[in-house]
């Protein structure tokens, strides 16, 4: 099952403190899941069956719903993206930028995989 670390407030947290969210295998290859992290909804995406994972906000600002983790992962040119499941805009997984509207920038999160644990910071 999933693991939920005790969440600390921003002030208390040290810079390099990582919170384990789930196991890598909890994210099926080339799909996303949604995590609750410090009160925010974070979309985590796993590229192929590798341990490369990205984390951006789960909120679709155009569709106005918390759904981005349920979008399809793919690439546009060299950039890895997710397509919104509602209206299909693309968001850069690395930068959070909306490819159709560069003014829209989603919040991104630091993410890593340590001993099969997906961790956010």
């Amino acid at each position: 099952m999933t693991l939920l670390n005790s969440v600390k407030t921003g002030q208390e947290q040290a810079v390099d403190q990582w919170s384990s969210i789930c196991l890598l295998e909890d994210i099926a290859p080339d799909t996303g899941v949604c995590a609750l992290y410090q009160g925010e909804q974070v979309a985590l995406f796993r590229i192929g069956d590798s341990d490369q994972v990205f984390a951006i906000s789960n909120y679709d600002p155009l569709g106005e719903a918390n759904v981005l983790s349920r979008g399809i992962v793919g690439s546009v040119g060299e950039r890895l993206v997710v397509a919104s499941p509602l209206y299909k805009q693309h968001y850069d997984l690395a930068t959070g930028e909306c490819l159709e509207d560069s003014d829209l920038l989603l919040k991104t999160y630091r993410v890593r995989v340590e001993q099969q644990q997906v961790q956010l910071s």
């Binding site: 999933t2 693991l3 939920l4 969210i21 789930c22 909890d26 994210i27 899941v33 949604c34 995590a35 609750l36 992290y37 909804q41 985590l44 909120y59 719903a65 918390n66």
Partner: peptide
């Protein structure tokens, strides 16, 4: 489930 790491619903 909405969250992989919590049993809560989407508050939106």
């Amino acid at each position: 489930q909405h969250f992989i790491n919590a049993d809560e619903d989407d508050s939106n």
